[in-house]
Amino acid sequence: MKHVDSTQVQNRMGTRLLINKLAKSIFFLSTIFGLIVLVILMYRVLSQGVEWIDWQFITGKLSTMAENAGVMGPLLGTFWLMLVVAPVTLILGVGTAIYLEEYAKKNRLQSLIQTNISNLAGVPSIVFGLLGLTVFVKGMNLGNIILAGGLTMSLLVLPIVVVASQEAIRAVPQYLREASYGMGATKWQTVKNVVMPASLPGILTGSILALSRAIGETAPLVVLGIPALIIPFPDNIFDKFTVMPLQIYYWTIDSALVDEYANLAAAAIVILLLLLFAMNSIAVIIRNKFQKRL
């Protein structure tokens, strides 16, 4: 006796195929939703801001007069901030990752540290702002200068760099390490010559994404008490500064007073998005380039 009744199979076929199509549509709509939001966002920002973007806007100094304002100050602020954040997070983040993956024994202490780092990645950025205010601005009496802001941002993105680097290091096949140890290499020689080169693309990708997160963050710097208007360009890490997202924030809340500030904010958003887009593209290019090699 047959268990599969072919007429029943025939009868059910229509419903099954219908559900199949339905599932596909739901998934497609989910995908398109994000795209629609992005298009609306881009449209609003571009229609408000693109006319305001000119050479004067990019290279000029900040000003209370909307038509005279330029964003070179915040751009330089962002640049100097990254000059602090990049080395600090790379050295501390990659160092931590190497220690945890290659040296630390897999015991309870290690798993405690691991859990803590993962939890830190989930701490709201404003809390890091408070930490920065307490430790760097007040505690070390640095004031709200680039160094203090950079160290605060470093703490914020450090967990991201650590976790991304750990994943990259873990992805290095064990047999490559064995080959190195098998020839009498020390741990450091193995890390330096085998593990690091093989995990570098992953580490760089993660770090660039973390940096672009730091570039976009606003809340911690608000807490540090960065003033709303800083006209002189910063030219070292001990200068006062402002950054792009913060300037966008101030222009937006002041647009109630001066209508044109909304346009300035939109124009600044366009430039910030271009910057972030460029950085993310670099991360993708690095990943693709090195993936082929391994």
């Binding site: 064995e178 080959a179 190195s180 098998g182 020839m183 009498g184 090699r293």
Partner: peptide, 16 residues
């Protein structure tokens, strides 16, 4: 020891 006693592994494992 490992300088005196070399090893060849099951799966070919050249470095990239």
């Amino acid at each position: 020891l490992r300088t005196q006693v070399g090893m060849v592994f099951q799966k070919p494992n050249p470095f990239p």
